[in-house]
Simulated scan of single mutants.
Amino acid sequence: MRLRSRPRPPLAQTNVTNEPPDRALTIRSDIQEANSKTGVVTARGNVQVNYPARQIQATSAQAQYYSRERRIVMTGNVYVLQEGNSLRGEVVTYLIDEGRFVALPNISQQVESIYLVRDGSETKEPVLAPQLELPPVNAPTLEPPPILSPTAPPPRILPPAALPIVPNRSAFPTR
């Protein structure tokens, strides 16, 4: 008996501009929804964003393109690559008109950026890294804090002045 697998439906794809293909912002995903009243396109599942005009490629679990505000909000294990520089975070917003990224990490994690830094002896133009705006350290998180047991004491947070000073125990003593 021969089993025939059903072909997988093609990925949904949206070109969000009427520009030539090299200037178009293309979003590919398993599922997409567009709301003509709000101007929001939502892509879910294996999302791939490609913007050749700015040499941007990105992947995420979900992306929302806000056409009126000209921004893209990508969520869920976001990875952005631009001219060899990379950015990882849980939520990354790309402001199209400003060419700027705003990245937020998962709770108790950090955003990771890797930038190509050219040696001073190289004669090529420097690679422009994505502009990254980090929220203040004490900014509210997107997810609520974990619920603590009513009998558990609240966590103790020390102000910086109350932290103990640890002497330098380096393997390389300073003189």
Rank of each mutant, 00 (worst) to 15 (best):
R54V: 08
R54M: 09
Q55H: 12
Q55R: 13
I56W: 05
I56D: 04
S60C: 12
A61H: 11
A61E: 15
A61T: 14
Q62C: 09
Q62A: 14
Q62K: 15
Q64V: 12
Q64L: 11
Y65N: 14
Y65L: 13
Y66R: 12
S67H: 10
S67C: 09
R68Y: 11
R68V: 14
R68M: 10
E69D: 15
R70M: 10
R71K: 15
I72L: 14
I72W: 05
I72R: 07
V73D: 12
G76F: 07
G76A: 09
N77W: 03
Y79D: 11
V80K: 02
L81F: 06
L81P: 03
L81R: 09
Q82W: 02
Q82Y: 03
E83Y: 01
N85A: 02
L87H: 01
L87K: 00
R88A: 09
G89F: 04
G89Y: 05
G89M: 03
G89H: 04
E90Y: 05
E90C: 01
T93A: 07
T93C: 08
T93K: 11
Y94P: 07
Y94I: 05
Y94H: 11
I96H: 06
D97V: 08
G99W: 03
G99P: 04
R100A: 07
R100K: 15
R100P: 01
F101P: 06
V102M: 13
L104V: 13
P105T: 00
P105A: 03
P105I: 01
N106H: 04
N106D: 13
I107F: 09
I107K: 09
S108H: 04
S108D: 11
Q109D: 11
Q109A: 03
Q109I: 00
Q109E: 10
Q110G: 07
Q110C: 04
V111K: 00
E112C: 00
I114L: 07
I114F: 01
I114N: 08
Y115R: 11
Y115N: 09
L116V: 12
L116I: 10
V117T: 04
V117W: 00
R118T: 12
R118Y: 09
D119K: 14
D119A: 13
G120M: 14
E122Q: 15
E122P: 06
T123C: 07
K124Y: 10
K124V: 13
K124M: 13
K124C: 10
K124N: 14
P126W: 00
V127C: 02
V127D: 05
V127G: 05
L128W: 01
L128I: 08
L128H: 09
A129T: 06
A129C: 01
A129G: 02
A129L: 02
P130E: 02
P130A: 03
E133D: 13
E133S: 15
